[in-house]
Design a protein around this nucleic acid. Structure first.
Lengths: 216, 216
DNA sequence: TCCATTACCTACTCGCGAGTAAGACTACGT
DNA sequence: ACGTAGTCTTACTCGCGAGTAGGTAATGGA
């Protein structure tokens, strides 16, 4: 009478594809909670409900596993934002949509976002290449969005203008997403609108009572 | 003929006070380059030009050493910004000065800034308390600055308005400081002015050619 | 029914790095 | 000259966690 002593009765003999997803899910969760270095393969395997050698067999060593997480999450996020921005709406509207889906993504996928955000900013890990690349793609996306927003306006912006602006905008968005954790009473839309107001109107306008509101 | 085999001839028998500074300097440097977890006490001791037990004797265990670094750097930064903002200049001008000294601090003290910034955002380390506290103080400082800037204007802002704005502003500043690393041709003043323009004017204004410039 | 393949596990090795034991050297006061 | 307080070192221990060796058991095709 050995039986399942304790814990969940480890679902057994699942096809590789399913296990890989479970492992990735667990890895994202643990990496988000502990950071790359403090996350142990043992804990990930435990959360995944699978033994450690499986991780190595399916996803490779620790940094490969981490990279797989980053790849999956960043692809999802970038495609989400890219999709929202690709339309023939006026550029301001595109920006508004992009911000909205960003905060919605963060809400639905806090762990994934944490991995992308918290780990990207903490260098010294062996992960550099993939993380740098995802950030790069995100920046290009945002910069394009901004550039389009100025096309045909009085002062079309040059890349050397939009680039730092894109960086600052991304930073503001990330900071707001962090702030959200401690102020969960706000909605994704509310956050997006706040940020839109800051970006589009600026403090000088807001103080004078000029605000931005989405078109109906 | 033992002699100094190699490397610098380790200055010997210095007073404690001096050694502590050397150790802190080395620690900040290494923590910035590698991150908390990847920094080894061995490397710090080597950079400091001192043997490992000295670190433990003078500054305590690894996390205590780290906390000492954070304390020193955050105090310096916050007092610098606080000092620049404390004046009876018009609020806009105060903000402008605060941004300027911030970027100047980052320029002069890249390693210290990296420790404060990169490590604060990467949780899972045992450092939480001190890092949370420093960020808290920084936020309060910025929020006050913003609140003052709206006093007596048409739409004085409530704390629940300034708080997320402060978070976003800080995030934008941090992101811009990061961006600076890859674009070192810019000056601290230039960066501060860019950010001031984003914060005060907003994209909508900039596109129309309305910009902010410092008063002479 | 038997073999091959694929899923999966227990139980290790082994290096790296935090932290320490135990003492050595120097300077200064008396 | 000699103790004592403070500086500083070499040379360890020891646990944690990455990665693996070597096997078991279920499934599906012949």
């Amino acid at each position: 009478m050995k039986a399942e002593d304790n814990g969940r009765p480890r679902s057994r003999r699942l096809p590789r594809e399913v296990r890989e997803r479970q492992i990735l899910d667990a890895a994202v969760e643990v990496f988000a909670a502990r950071g790359f270095h403090n996350a142990s393969m043992d804990e990930i395997s435990e959360v995944a409900g699978v033994s450690k050698p499986m991780l190595y067999a399916y996803l490779g060593a620790k940094d490969e596993l981490f990279i797989a997480c980053v790849r999956r999450e960043s692809t999802l996020l970038i495609e989400t934002i890219g999709g929202a921005a690709e339309s023939d709406l006026p550029p301001v509207e595109q920006l508004w949509r992009a911000l909205r889906v960003f905060f919605e993504y963060v809400q639905r996928n806090r762990a994934g976002w944490t991995v992308l955000h918290r780990q990207t900013n903490s260098q010294g890990e062996p992960n550099v290449a993939e993380l740098v690349e995802w950030r790069e793609r995100a920046m290009v996306l945002i910069a394009e969005l901004l550039a389009r927003a100025t096309d045909g306006s009085a002062q079309p912006m040059q890349p050397q203008q939009t680039e730092p602006f894109a960086a600052a905008l991304a930073g503001a968005g990330e900071a707001l997403a962090d702030w959200w954790v401690d102020n969960p009473e706000h909605t994704a839309d509310g956050l997006a609108m706040r940020l839109m107001n800051m970006v589009w109107m600026g403090f000088g306008d807001l103080v004078e009572g000029r605000t931005w509101t989405p078109a109906e």
